[in-house]
Amino acid sequence: MRKTGSGERLKQVVALAALLALAGFAVAGPTGLLAWSENLAALGQREAEVDRLTAERNALRNRVMLLDPEAADPDLASELVREQLGVIHEDELVITLEDE
């Protein structure tokens, strides 16, 4: 059996410490295994927020299309004018009639 010198032993200890530090970061680091579930939960929240914002964007896009100056929806235009002039009340009920 060969005896190792103190320099060789120091290199082994430093290498072992480096490997243990890397293993520690792999498990408990910001992108390690323990953070994985937190990241998945955050991803779920972000996806829900994206879905909500997409629905909001689609609703706004639809409203913009209804306000097209070439073919504005008369009911929406009337609602907006009444709201801007302050002649619409909170308890007012609007009933739309379909064209026959």
Rank of each mutant, 00 (worst) to 15 (best):
residue 43 L to C: 00
residue 10 L to D: 07
residue 30 P to Q: 13
residue 46 R to A: 11
residue 50 V to L: 15
residue 73 D to E: 15
residue 29 G to I: 02
residue 19 L to G: 05
residue 56 E to D: 07
residue 68 D to T: 06
residue 38 E to T: 08
residue 75 D to R: 11
residue 72 A to G: 03
residue 23 A to Q: 06
residue 86 G to K: 08
residue 71 A to V: 11
residue 78 S to D: 11
residue 26 A to L: 15
residue 24 G to V: 01
residue 18 A to V: 04
residue 79 E to W: 13
residue 11 K to C: 06
residue 71 A to P: 00
residue 91 D to S: 15
residue 10 L to A: 08
residue 97 L to F: 06
residue 17 A to T: 04
residue 31 T to Y: 05
residue 72 A to S: 13
residue 93 L to Y: 01
residue 27 V to S: 03
residue 57 R to D: 02
residue 72 A to F: 01
residue 91 D to H: 15
residue 38 E to C: 02
residue 19 L to W: 02
residue 51 D to T: 10
residue 92 E to Y: 10
residue 27 V to Q: 06
residue 32 G to K: 03
residue 19 L to R: 09
residue 31 T to Q: 08
residue 39 N to P: 00
residue 8 E to H: 10
residue 61 R to K: 14
residue 57 R to G: 00
residue 5 G to H: 11
residue 23 A to R: 04
residue 98 E to R: 08
residue 47 E to S: 08
residue 42 A to M: 07
residue 47 E to N: 09
residue 15 A to D: 15
residue 4 T to D: 13
residue 34 L to P: 00
residue 66 L to Y: 09
residue 90 E to P: 08
residue 11 K to T: 05
residue 85 L to V: 00
residue 89 H to C: 06
residue 18 A to T: 09
residue 27 V to M: 06
residue 49 E to C: 01
residue 19 L to S: 09
residue 65 M to V: 07
residue 73 D to L: 11
residue 75 D to F: 12
residue 87 V to P: 00
residue 95 I to G: 00
residue 65 M to G: 05
residue 22 L to F: 04
residue 10 L to E: 10
residue 9 R to Q: 12
residue 98 E to G: 05
residue 29 G to Q: 02
residue 90 E to H: 15
residue 34 L to Q: 04
residue 51 D to S: 12
residue 33 L to Y: 01
residue 68 D to H: 10
residue 79 E to K: 06
residue 38 E to L: 07
residue 100 E to W: 12
residue 85 L to Q: 01
residue 67 L to W: 08
residue 64 V to Q: 15
residue 14 V to M: 07
residue 98 E to D: 08
residue 62 N to V: 08
residue 66 L to N: 10
residue 14 V to F: 04
residue 78 S to Q: 11
residue 1 M to R: 10
residue 26 A to G: 15
residue 14 V to L: 12
residue 80 L to S: 02
residue 60 L to G: 12
residue 4 T to C: 07
residue 2 R to H: 12
residue 76 L to W: 10
residue 85 L to K: 02
residue 48 A to N: 08
residue 33 L to M: 07
residue 1 M to E: 10
residue 41 A to T: 14
residue 37 S to L: 04
residue 85 L to Y: 00
residue 59 A to I: 10
residue 65 M to E: 13
residue 65 M to Y: 07
residue 20 L to C: 00
residue 2 R to A: 15
residue 83 E to N: 13
residue 7 G to S: 10
residue 80 L to Y: 05
residue 91 D to E: 15
residue 28 A to N: 07
residue 77 A to M: 14
residue 78 S to P: 00
residue 42 A to W: 03
residue 16 L to K: 10
residue 78 S to E: 11
residue 57 R to M: 04
residue 43 L to M: 06
residue 17 A to F: 02
residue 33 L to K: 00
residue 35 A to I: 00
residue 39 N to V: 01
residue 25 F to A: 05
residue 22 L to I: 05
residue 7 G to C: 03
residue 98 E to L: 07
residue 8 E to T: 12
residue 81 V to L: 14
residue 27 V to N: 02
residue 47 E to D: 09
residue 32 G to M: 05
